[in-house]
Amino acid sequence: MLKKIDSSKMGSSDHGWLRSKFHFSFAEYYNPQNMHFGKLRVLNDDLIDAQTGFEMHHHQDMEIISYVVGGELTHGDSMGNKSTLTRGHVQYVSAGTGVYHSEHNRGSNTARFLQIWILPNQENLKPNYGEYRFNWDDRKNKWLHMVSSTNGSAPIKINQDSNIYSLELAESKEIGFPVKSGRQAYLVQIEGTSNINGIELNDRDALEILEEDITIKSSKKSHILIIEMKKPNQD
């Protein structure tokens, strides 16, 4: 089963320095019918002006993944970590028992990143931080497996049965992605236009996928992210 999520119908906010699209209920956007997709609790598509950002704030019991689409994202946290990531790079915070962190755009251009929160498989874990500077070419016309569970094979491992992949698909190219029985996936058309099993997605649209293999054909060069996971109540 497939369900298109049109970006124009998503929640949104504009704080001047920060402009966001909310895939699920978050902050001032609240929709009790749109709280999560399986263990995926938050997916915010954020635009942050230069020399602004989120000051130090607290999180607990959440797996937080940031995927940088453009510009610079500088992270700092109460564990002593500090680094700046750019396009195609990923950072991960396992908030566990509690962690404070900040995210700033110290660059000269607007930054864009996807803020992803996934519920962990258990509470009160020890906080942890990780990052990976993926080579952009490693996702050209092929799936780049960036995040997996602790039992998986991706460079970044989180405390949940979830996988995150990215892709840049050249115009008119095709690629498949399997979503097996007992699994589901959430696809974000970050940039470009594509046709997926007869459904057209444009910039910032999304697609819910339940136990159905998909074929993606790029109408315009496409930058795509997929979060694949176990369906709820599947052991």
Score class of each variant (00 low, 15 high):
155 P>N: 08
227 I>W: 07
197 N>K: 05
165 Y>D: 14
208 E>F: 09
157 K>Q: 15
151 N>V: 03
175 I>W: 11
203 D>S: 05
179 V>I: 14
228 E>P: 01
180 K>T: 04
174 E>P: 03
148 S>E: 11
227 I>A: 11
198 G>M: 11
186 Y>E: 02
218 S>W: 03
230 K>M: 13
174 E>H: 08
185 A>T: 07
153 S>Q: 15
217 K>A: 08
168 E>N: 06
169 L>H: 04
149 S>Q: 04
192 G>K: 06
156 I>E: 02
205 D>L: 02
200 E>V: 13
223 H>I: 11
148 S>N: 13
215 T>F: 04
213 D>M: 04
228 E>A: 10
167 L>N: 05
158 I>Y: 01
225 L>M: 15
233 N>L: 03
229 M>L: 08
155 P>M: 07
226 I>A: 07
173 K>W: 00
167 L>M: 09
164 I>Q: 05
150 T>R: 14
209 I>V: 13
157 K>F: 09
212 E>N: 11
224 I>C: 08
167 L>C: 06
229 M>Y: 05
202 N>V: 03
216 I>N: 09
197 N>L: 06
232 P>R: 06
177 F>P: 10
187 L>R: 07
191 E>H: 13
182 G>D: 04
205 D>Y: 00
193 T>S: 11
209 I>K: 00
171 E>K: 12
184 Q>L: 13
204 R>H: 09
206 A>N: 07
226 I>N: 05
183 R>T: 08
169 L>A: 05
205 D>M: 01
170 A>P: 00
196 I>K: 00
204 R>G: 02
